[in-house]
Nucleic acid binder design. Structure first.
Lengths: 207, 207
DNA sequence: GCCGAAGGTGAGCAACCGCTTAGACGAGGG
DNA sequence: CCCTCGTCTAAGCGGTTGCTCACCTTCGGC
């Protein structure tokens, strides 16, 4: 059930907090469109059309097209942060927690590739204020991973030269999955998660 | 001198093959604009303005705005492939060649971040035919890296579970540098290259 | 001194963009 | 029954987009 999220916009569960129903449909349509063509190449008419509504309906629930991206980014980053926090704060060795963090974070990027793509690559399309708000969430994500690595170094489990640089590399490995992962490809999200978790443990020199 | 490439569009040397001079100036202006705002958010008026020309001048040298992106992508991917081939075909152990490939590839992504960003992230803005042509170059890049890893496995230098997956992870590490690297940040391209080369050698279990 | 080609410009076209407005519709309360 | 509120639509506004066209300049060859 962990890979139950399917194709474009399939993670309906994640958008349960968005109400009313029409607003949620518009938001899911926007996620699909942004992921496929990018924010700037997507028209408000396309979003409304995917949601089965007229172009004007969008502006009843959202003030601008950018507000849609802002909402998507905030919800998506909150979900990403939640995933990393859950892994970081569970009990277990640093090795176990890092493997858990990487595999679940990668699973999210692969399974929910549609959302992850928008969240990770359309940030620059936001205005300065909204952008800064989202960047703060992103820094929290980095901090969660770095904390696990620091724990592992302190306990002697890991052998790391540059904690900050290694943290960035771990994030790179996870985030880039959203760029190349293909639902019709040879791997399942679970397989990529397990593979990348193994590679990350090698990177930090886990025993 | 290996990090002589500066800020936006600084790698003038790489565009030497583009003639006449006005066409090159337009192309460099397009690289800067695409990297800053993305392909779809960039206007032909902006590109022409950066090159110090009128909007109509663009269409003397290029048929469409997409042709500019196509040209940039092809030259950029050719350069990337050349970097990887040089490292893969030099003499030395698989360990040395992999470290060389990763460090020089990462240096290119960090130092020429402007170009690399366009090359790696604006691919989907191309039409189907141009896209397929560029994807072929990208597959060749993957193949060069995979060949080095396979050599290392065959010679017993590396210990790798999944060659294809590990190759993808190595590419992820390199390519994602174009997303996060900041010229004003704490690292030089050389430092990131050395750090990532070390991390990759750990990933493949190099002795 | 004339010519044609190459390179460049100002003005502008048709299409499309994000977004607004005036009004229709159905549901719920009095 | 009517009124109101939330929801949705048809039509369209001002502005911007990629791109074109008629025209001008520069310059090497003869």
């Amino acid at each position: 059930m962990s890979t139950a999220e399917e194709t474009a916009g399939g993670e309906t569960s994640a958008w349960g907090e968005v109400t009313p129903d029409a607003a949620r449909r518009l938001l899911i349509a926007a996620v699909e469109a942004f992921a496929e063509r990018g924010y700037h190449a997507t028209t408000t008419r396309d979003i409304a059309g995917r949601a089965g509504m007229s172009p004007a309906a969008l502006y009843i629930h959202y003030k601008t097209k950018e507000e849609l991206l802002h909402r998507i980014s905030r919800i998506g980053h909150a979900k990403a942060l939640e995933i990393l926090q859950t892994a970081a704060r569970r009990e277990g060795t640093a090795t176990e927690r890092l493997a858990d963090a990487v595999s679940s974070f990668v699973r999210w990027h692969a399974g929910g590739r549609t959302t992850a793509r928008v969240v990770q690559y359309e940030l620059d399309s936001l205005g300065p204020d909204a952008r800064e708000e989202i960047l703060a969430l992103r820094r929290q994500c980095d901090a969660e991973v770095r904390a696990i690595i620091e724990d592992g170094v302190a306990s002697g489990e890991f052998d790391v030269l540059d904690v900050k640089g290694t943290t960035l590399a771990v994030m790179s490995l996870c985030i880039d999955v959203a760029r190349w992962f293909n639902v019709d490809g040879p791997w399942t999200p679970d397989e990529v998660g397990a593979l990348d978790a193994d590679l990350v443990l090698r990177m930090v020199g886990a025993k």
